[in-house]
Structures are given as C-alpha cells and as structure tokens.
C-alpha cells in the first residue's frame, strides 16, 4: 500500500488557483522531488498535506487515513514532519528545547503531573531529555545544545530544523527548499545528510528544491509544477529533457 496517496488535490486562495488536480502515490522509502518556478504551488501542497490549509477539493490519504480536516498537530502526530522554506525555529529558545518541544505528541503526562512533578513527569521528562540529546548528537548539534537557536550559524539552523522535524518521529518527511541560502560546500553536505537520515530513520521524503543539483542528484522521481498544474513527472533525465519543463523554466535558471 502506498504510504501517501493524493488524489485531485486543488486549492484556491480567493480567485487564485494555487494548486490544481495534484496527484501523488508515494511508496514507503521513496525520495520524490517537486520542482517548479516561483509561485508554482509547491509550498501550498505541503501546507495542504500538513493541514495548514484545508483543500478546496481532493483527498489526501496517509497510511489509508484521510488527513483532510485534521489539525496540523494531529497530522504531525500521525507521522508526517516538515521543515520550512524560510527557517522557522523557536529563536529565543535553546537548541535542546527546540528539539524537546517536538516531542510534544509523545508526551503523555498531564498538567497535574507537571505542576507537582509527579513520578510520571520525572520519568517522561528524563526520557525526552535523553532522546533529544541523542538526536542532537547524531545530527552533530550536541555541542550547541545550550545555545539559543538564533545564535547558530545559518547552516546549523537549517540542520536544527531538520533535527526538530525528526524528533516528531515521522515516517514521511517534507523538506521545503532545505538548500536555500547555502553555499556549494554546504549543499554537498546537505545532500549527504538527507541520504543519511533517510537510511538512519527509514524515511520517505518529499523534497521541494530550486537547486537542480540537489534534486537531480538525490531524487528518484520528480514532479514538475507550474501555475498549480503538474506539467511533468518522471526520472531526473526524463524531466530534464521534457520540452514543457524547459519552456516553464525559460528565463528562469537553466537546468543543469
């Protein structure tokens, strides 16, 4: 069974058709890329999957369960995590706290447990603390655990955002332009990182990216969007040679 099934997903902002008839079948373990010019509707697809907006039409099934109408936190708790096009860390909080917050859905103690520091609170907090630190260690961020998130250099902020997403224990990870603002060296590191976390955490990944090197380098399958429509789909080579894609990108950056 596909992990994620999207059927006829359509979304309007007022009169603007941001996404139209988007379809996707995602098998467990796949790494699919979504590309397209600015304003094509890529981010909107992520927002629809994660419940930020309610689709105008269409169906989204995750593991066979419909996501439409669910709140974002419920959807995340079901095993989907995401990062953001522009970094959205909890800037004034510590690196460790950023990751611990993402354990929210896995925290089961109640208000009273917390207020009176009952055993259940102590046990779960110790667990969360340790798991968060392990994750930070794996992601190479443990040395900065006490830092305020905004004081991290840009590349590490991006990485922390991924770590925070992983802390929710997802099966499906949605990455929205993770390479934005990175230099070539950082981009290479990022590509390694994505492939590494994919294996390490058994992830299925959808990747939105403008950097063709990243998309072409690590995605097995690519969907191309333009003005809300899906204009092409296939392997990196197929997509690269598709005349409609070349046309859509004309005047944009050349496909490498």
């Amino acid at each position: 069974m596909p992990l994620l099934q999207i059927r006829g997903l359509t979304h309007y902002f007022g009169g603007l058709r941001a996404v139209h008839n988007f379809n996707l079948d995602l098998e467990p373990g796949e790494l699919v890329g979504i590309i397209g010019p600015n304003g094509a509707g890529k981010t909107t697809v992520f927002n629809l999957i994660t419940g930020v907006y309610r689709p105008t039409a269409g169906e989204i099934l995750f593991n066979g369960h419909s996501l439409v109408g669910k709140r974002p936190d419920q959807i995340i708790a079901m095993g989907i995590a995401r990062t953001f096009q522009t970094i959205r860390l909890f800037k004034d909080l510590s690196v460790l706290d950023n990751v611990r917050i993402a354990h929210f859905a896995q925290t089961s103690y109640g208000v009273m447990d917390a207020l009176f520091r009952l055993p259940r609170y102590r046990r779960e907090e110790a667990e969360i603390r340790e798991r968060a630190m392990e994750l930070l260690d794996l992601m190479g961020l443990a040395d900065q655990a006490n830092w305020v998130a905004s004081s991290l250099p840009y590349g590490l902020q991006r990485r922390l955002e991924i770590a925070r997403a992983l802390a929710t224990e997802p099966r499906l990870l949605l990455l929205d332009e993770p390479a934005a603002g990175m230099n070539p060296g950082e981009i290479t590191e990022l590509m390694d990182l994505i492939q590494w976390i994919r294996r390490q955490f058994n992830l299925t990944i959808i990747l939105i990216e403008h950097q063709m090197r990243v998309v072409m380098g690590i995605c097995e399958r690519i969907k191309v969007m333009d003005f809300g429509e899906t204009i092409a789909e296939g392997t990196p080579t197929e997509v690269q040679n598709n005349p409609r894609v070349i046309e859509a990108y004309l005047g944009e950056e050349a496909i490498v």
């Binding site: 709140r71 936190d73 708790a77 909890f90 917050i101 929210f104 925290t107 917390a114 802390a167």
Partner: peptide, 24 residues
C-alpha cells in the same frame, strides 16, 4: 515541562509549533 515548552513555542511561532506536533 514539555507543556510549558509548548507555551513558549506559541510565543515563538504558533504555526511552526503546531507543525512540530504541539496541540496548541
């Protein structure tokens, strides 16, 4: 506590907070 961190995360960025599983 993690509930309290949830409170803080709403101050920092409510949308991001719900997108890392915080039941706002």
């Amino acid at each position: 506590s993690n509930l309290g961190r949830g409170i803080l995360s709403i101050r920092e960025d409510e949308i991001a907070s719900s997108l890392v599983s915080v039941d706002t």
